[in-house]
């Protein structure tokens, strides 16, 4: 058997000069392992703050896939450019991301709590007060 068959990297001799790279703890070898690793990394990435450096490359599914900052901060830790008034966010939680701890229950107990408020930027004051 020839040398090149014994060692597949002999036709690229410069590689031998490189210092040995440290082996990662775990290498996902087959396709299923790669799927798992991608899933794990995405799940870990979801817990990163948007302001963290480097910023996360993957975003979780849900309300944060749209630009709707509210009572949080913007990417520069500021609040100045956030939507006015903050009640706009009630709709984001209510329609696109039902969040029962934060908004009235529009299905059974308060079905019409926003009925007199069509455009919250103008008439947010007419949203009903709902007491649990």
């Amino acid at each position: 058997m020839s040398d090149s068959q014994d060692n597949p990297i002999t036709d690229e001799p410069e590689l031998e000069q490189e210092p040995a790279r440290k082996q990662p703890r775990i290498i996902a070898c087959n396709q299923k392992a790669r799927q798992l690793a991608t899933m794990v990394l995405a799940r870990r990435g979801a817990a990163r703050a948007l302001t963290q450096d480097p910023p996360p490359t993957q975003y979780p599914y849900g309300c944060t896939t749209v630009f709707a900052p509210g009572w949080e901060v913007d990417s520069g830790n500021g609040t100045h450019g956030l939507c006015q008034p903050i009640e706009r966010d009630l709709y984001d939680c209510y329609h696109t991301c039902y969040w029962p701890a934060q908004v009235p229950d529009g299905v059974t107990n308060a079905p019409s709590w926003t009925s007199s408020c069509g455009a919250p930027m103008q008439d947010w004051k007419s949203i009903d007060l709902v007491f649990p």
Partner: peptide, 10 residues
């Protein structure tokens, strides 16, 4: 899962 992982010694 039928995943195959290569592991370093530790």
């Amino acid at each position: 899962s039928a995943a195959i992982l290569a592991l370093d010694e530790p």
